[in-house]
Amino acid sequence: MVETPTETPAEPPAEVPADPKTELREQAADALARLQAELGDAIVEHGAAYGDVVVRVDREAWRITAQVCKQKLDCDYLSFIAGIDWMPTPAVTEDGSGDTSTPAQPKEQTYGVAGSEGRYQLFAVVMSTRRKSWRVILKTDLPDDDLHVESWVPVYAGADWHEREAWEMYGFVFDGHPSLRHLYLPSEFEGHPLRKDYPLLAREVKPWPGLVDVEPMPGEAADDEAAPALDGGETA
């Protein structure tokens, strides 16, 4: 696994104390204990996301994790598989021109719950149709120079389209997938649109329509008294 040299080690949010939202739901804690018993060292890190358990596993153990979830944890239902690109959103407005309406994201690369080793991450949610609120969020890291991971299709048949989507949107390659081909986009489409460095060209050539004749965006205005939330951005 290759680490990006510029990254700062992420703070594991699971250890932030005294926040009711980082506590695990009863069922989630149970699921975590079972996963730990089954997978052992393959679990790199775990955390909580508002009651749900987030487990980051080793890339080599990605398919085994699915099997364990399906066969030992009663998670028969695949909700989705998707990718994340943790690279900071490129600022279009460095020189003060162009797109000023995009919400400003932090400039440094930080990672979410259960951390990450690099830029690309794959995550999935599996659930049970037999137990109440029984679900697990699984994550795994893909190194920048080797975006390969084992396919889940043999375990969850529904992974087919989700993996095609992740391949199209991020360029992740799923070993053992029957046919990785374009799902949404025309087959001559180039690039991986959900990567953070894929630009939306329309925004660069055309200013946000709401900005043409309007007062400053809410982000720039002074904080007024707490009032009902307004659709500040939509004034046009």
Binding site: G112, R135, D223
Partner: peptide
């Protein structure tokens, strides 16, 4: 609710029973 909506850092998965089935949003905020 504050006038300007800034959502604190974190991530959450919420799914609900929509007419067509399970609809969920996995929101990651920074």
């Amino acid at each position: 609710v504050p006038r300007i909506i800034k959502v604190p850092e974190g991530e959450v998965f919420v799914n609900t029973e929509n007419p067509l089935g399970e609809m969920g949003y996995y929101v990651i905020s920074k």
